[in-house]
Nucleic acid binder design. Structure first.
Lengths: 200, 200
DNA sequence: AGCTTCATGTAATCCGTTACATGATTCC
DNA sequence: GGAATCATGTAACGGATTACATGAAGCT
């Protein structure tokens, strides 16, 4: 269901075509809630059928493109969802699952896992930091387009919540990097102490 | 696919019946990879069909229960999976998604969200800390049963990786609490500065 | 006699992933 | 003329959630 609200949120900024949504998604909400194009197009149709979006066909050259805008019912749905109590998601992280059983594999394989975590979350953290900064200085294009259509007194809150969400994700990523580095040390320590015994 | 490996990992500790697996799951791997009973039973059957588990029917009173044990192929599969490069999961967190758009709702609703996050992750953190500690002092029943069947020189690594995984999840939870508390402050600050304007 | 725990599932539905599919337009 | 980007999807499959379903054993 969250994809629906991610799309709704994105479109409150500005009406967009399916394709533009796909692009804007990747550089904004998509960091928070990832979705592929093949999921986005059908969902837009369903949302239109449910009356959450208004769709107007626009001729452009020979092809027609569909511009989607949030309807009044869509705004209501978004606002209801925001106020809804959030049933927290139960953890389901393949990484921690693997980490818990690394005694089953070789020190080399264990190290490779942690190295990959460090690499991935370092990169992810950089992306999140860049994005957060571009929100704070309001240079982020999707945000900038949104702000243009809003009165100045709302800008502060709009920016603050978005930057704050990225801040949270950024800290998670940084924490993951620190954790994975400790994992590498753990593997070294266990190997030095001869704790890696043969497995059956 | 991870459920399969979660079950495999759990069963390397000791053969179990479906029901025991369900129980043990809840108090161990289930913290890391949550799954409902209705998912576990069919998956066990599929794993047996795929040759990863050996299943022997045991009469118990009038009913028969099935005891599942990891086969040689199952051990191989687990080991292969542990060495496999982990394609990191793209973020998909309804919480951050909501947080990013809280300017759309009232300060009261925003506060309620953050309060709920604080509550949930505090509780979750306590559970994770208790579990980590019971792993470290080896009093955790599922772990204790596993260790009994392993030579003493392997105990250190087995315990260390499990505690380390919980440690990582614990820090995530603590970080979430700190973040949500800052969210409450943010809402207060925005409200005081009159940044909550009327929405359309 | 009634509650809890043991014991094992099925069915429907939803959500997400992967792979495939097609064609126009714009820029170089 | 060819590449990138614009533009919009379908189909098959897999995995997870929710709700439903049943019945015995053991304890109080």
């Amino acid at each position: 269901m969250s994809l629906r609200y991610a799309l709704l949120s994105l479109l409150t900024g500005q009406p967009k075509t399916g394709y533009e949504i796909g692009k804007a998604f990747e550089s904004s909400v998509g960091h928070v809630w990832h979705a592929a194009d093949s999921q986005i197009y059908p969902e837009l149709r369903r949302m239109e059928a449910d009356g959450l979006l208004d769709c107007t066909a626009q001729a452009k050259g020979r092809t027609t493109r569909k511009v989607y805008a949030v309807s009044a019912a869509g705004k209501r749905a978004l606002r209801d969802w925001l106020a809804e109590p959030d049933r927290p998601v139960r953890s389901r992280d393949p990484q921690y699952l693997r980490a818990a059983y690394l005694d089953w594999t070789t020190p080399e394989a264990a190290r490779a896992q942690f190295e990959e975590y460090v690499r991935y979350y370092t990169e992810q953290g950089e992306l999140l930091r860049r994005t957060r900064d571009s929100l704070l200085d309001r240079s982020h294009p999707v945000l900038a387009a949104r702000l243009e259509r809003l009165p100045a007194e709302q800008h502060e809150a709009v920016v603050a919540f978005k930057a704050f969400a990225y801040e949270g994700m950024l800290r998670q990523a940084e924490q993951q990097v620190a954790w994975a580095r400790e994992g590498l040390e753990l593997v070294d320590r266990l190997e030095r102490s001869g704790a890696y015994a043969a497995l059956d």
